[in-house]
């Protein structure tokens, strides 16, 4: 009851009825004490598993020693960053990361937009629903299963090679050959995500007024006109926001799928910054160096997303913030 009275009093007069002597923060905290109690566990979680690792980034400026800890390890300044940037392998990693991302963007970015537009053109709502639900399904299949399917279908006597053999007589070692790696990565990525990524565009399309289509029809617009002048403009803001976000991620590439797909013979095209961090850090126990590499990637990511946003703002398009 007291909590309520207090809130009511505050509403009426702006001055709480009791405990006038206490400073405002203390009063407020007491008023919200149960909310604070609820928030305690999440707060501890964020401190332990989000902010403590951020503090751990300091080891990239140290020669970190697990026994000595962050406070006891010697500081070495930018040594690890210099070492990484001067390593000839650095360029290969950057190139691989960028190329895989650019190809993914080139093929993978338009795909869900096209799918959404085509789904929008379907007249039978039931059929549309069924197709949508089927297209989302691969999103829920685990990376391990997807890569397992790829490895088996692409193996020398797998499904794909049986087809290849019919036409060429020989089989291709897809996963051993560097020239196929990006194609496999990008194509399977589209398979996994095209349906799921189309949801956001379809959501934008549900907001389009049906009267616009009707009016266009009366004015004699055909399909292409309607797609070009009504559908596309109405999802354009969504498209540009998604594009900014994707450009911001150009230097970030997840390690999970690549770790499952790359082999010794495809390292030259498949090894990217995040897999390198994993190998150097967790397999090689070179914690400081790997953290420096990871931090470098994160900083470039922030710069990229900020500048993409800036450019988009300048062009008068939508921006993230």
């Amino acid at each position: 009851m007291s909590t309520l009275q207090q809130t009511q009093n505050q509403k009426k007069t702006g001055v709480p009825g009791k405990s006038k002597s206490m400073p405002k923060p203390v009063r407020e905290i007491i008023r919200c004490k149960y909310l604070y109690l609820i928030f305690l566990i999440p707060f501890v979680y964020y401190i332990l598993f989000q902010y403590w690792p951020m503090y751990g980034i300091l080891i990239s400026f140290q020669d970190y020693n697990v026994v000595k800890g962050i406070l006891g390890s010697p500081w070495v300044g930018l040594k690890h960053f210099e070492k990484f940037l001067l390593d000839p392998y650095f360029w290969k990693l950057v190139r691989n990361t960028l190329l895989i991302n650019i190809y993914s963007l080139l093929w993978g970015f338009p795909a869900p937009i096209i799918l959404a537009i085509l789904l929008n053109e379907l007249k039978n709502e039931k059929f549309k629903k069924v197709i949508q639900n089927i297209s989302y399904l691969p999103h829920f299949i685990s990376t391990v299963v997807v890569c397992g399917m790829l490895v088996n279908f692409l193996s020398s006597d797998g499904m794909i090679n049986q087809l290849v053999k019919v036409f060429t007589g020989t089989s291709i070692q897809f996963l051993m050959d560097p020239k196929y790696f990006r194609t496999i990565y990008v194509a399977s990525g589209i398979w996994q995500s095209v349906g799921w990524n189309s949801i956001i565009y379809l959501a934008a399309l549900t907001g389009v007024d049906a009267e616009m289509y009707e009016a266009a029809l009366i004015d004699g617009a055909n399909r292409w006109h309607r797609i070009w002048y009504i559908t596309l403009p109405s999802i354009a803001p969504t498209i540009s926001i998604m594009l900014i976000m994707n450009l911001g991620r150009l230097m970030n590439l997840g390690h999970e799928k690549i770790l499952l797909l790359y082999t010794g013979s495809t390292y030259e095209v498949a090894d990217v910054i995040s897999t390198y961090v994993y190998r150097r850090g967790l397999l090689g126990n070179d914690f400081s160096y790997a953290t420096a590499v990871g931090l470098f990637q994160a900083i470039v990511g922030v710069i990229l997303v900020t500048s993409a946003n800036q450019i988009s703002k300048k062009l008068g398009e939508t921006s993230l913030w």
Binding site: L48, F49, Q50, W52, P53, M54, Y55, G56, I57, I59, V66, H255, S274, V277, Y278, G281, L282, F287, A290, T291, G294, L295, A298, V302
Partner: peptide
Amino acid sequence: MFISGGMIPSYLV
């Protein structure tokens, strides 16, 4: 959502 410790610091924690 924008800043995180990354793979290695998280592992060390």
